[in-house]
């Protein structure tokens, strides 16, 4: 069974968002998403300083048999990227909510966070997507 930590917000496209200090939002992919992808072999990260809009493609995650775009869940400026993933992409599988984070956004609009799903709604969304 996949985990859905209650303190996070989720996008239907399977990103999670964690609000940190002063409007900084950490972003990764959910346990459910990493499980569906299988062994992650590569992560392409955005550049620090890059502006992103909510819903815009900001990163790519690749397994042997699939590649998925990672969409920014909120708008803002990329302030950090997890360079650990460049050498150890398997971290996304091992610790999707911790060391497996992708990037941090200095968010422009707090209201966008409210539009994301809570853990329970997201879990139901995953359930409904499975065959």
């Amino acid at each position: 069974m996949s985990e859905f930590p209650a303190e996070l917000r989720y996008a239907p496209s399977h990103e999670w968002a964690r609000v940190e200090d002063e409007g900084v939002v950490a972003v990764g992919i959910s346990d459910h998403a990493q499980d569906a992808l299988g062994d992650v072999v590569y992560v392409e990260l955005p550049e620090v300083g890059q502006d992103v809009e909510a819903g815009e493609e900001a990163a790519v995650v690749e397994s042997v048999k699939a590649a998925s775009d990672i969409y920014a869940p909120v708008s803002g400026t990329i302030v950090a990227v997890n360079t650990l993933l460049e050498d150890a992409p398997e971290t996304v599988n091992q610790d999707p909510y911790g060391d497996g984070w992708f990037f941090r956004i200095q968010s422009r609009d707090d209201a966008e966070l409210d539009a994301l799903l809570d853990a329970q709604t997201y879990a139901e969304h995953c359930e409904s997507e499975s065959p």
């Binding site: 072999v41 590569y42 690749e62 397994s63 042997v64 048999k65 699939a66 590649a67 775009d69």
Partner: peptide
């Protein structure tokens, strides 16, 4: 590196 290719990535 097949994830770059059309049979997986299709339009992208």
């Amino acid at each position: 590196l097949q994830a770059r290719e059309q049979h997986i990535r299709r339009a992208k």
